[in-house]
Amino acid sequence: MQSQIKQTLNAIILTEDLGKAVVTSEGTLHILSSIDLIINPGESIAIIGESGSGKSTLISLLAGLDTPSSGSIKLKGKSLTEMNEDGRAALRNELIGFVFQSFQLLQGLTALENVMLPLELRGDKNAKAVATALLNRVGLGQRLSHTPKQLSGGEQQRVALARAFATKPAILFADEPTGNLDSKTGETIINLLFELNRENQTTLILVTHDPILAARCQRTIRIDAGRIV
């Protein structure tokens, strides 16, 4: 009991009875129900499940991109559910990094500018130096001024990785990061992701279909029909 309380106090992500429902013409549809999660700092978690099982909804709630219908979420002790949209945005900037399946780079910006973006939003004066170092770290030191259109899929995802770690987030959400890549490139990206995760001691929440990739995480959470199974 005491260890559970301690664990709860230390948790970087804590959800209680989290649920998401939408009202459709055919009645209320429960996408997620009774999700209780305790995720500790530095932990790597894989969320797996079939398409439509509610994985993406869970990650969007945890990252404060969407609001739950019931229950609560705390990130680093701060109640996400009690914040308004701007409060959640500030928290995202402070705590969270993202890696998406479709990379989500700004097409008009160069690789360097894309990585600088979250730092600039924070008002970081060393944005350029930090971004350059990170791009060197992911092997794109020679491609700083290239725009996303001039980069391959793998290279774009490396830029996205560099961007995700630029602000040294406490939590990194990765939504199918290899979904748009071939298996070899995907593997390289995943290796890089785990290396960076280790170096930065980030909490990693990874959504994937891939059991091999899930196995590389410390813990796996399986979602089925909106519930943890």
Partner: peptide, 16 residues
């Protein structure tokens, strides 16, 4: 829309 969603995701507030 997409770029804005990303900026919002990265922590930009509505007024910003």
């Amino acid at each position: 829309f997409n770029a804005t969603a990303l900026l919002r995701c990265l922590g930009c507030q509505q007024q910003e």
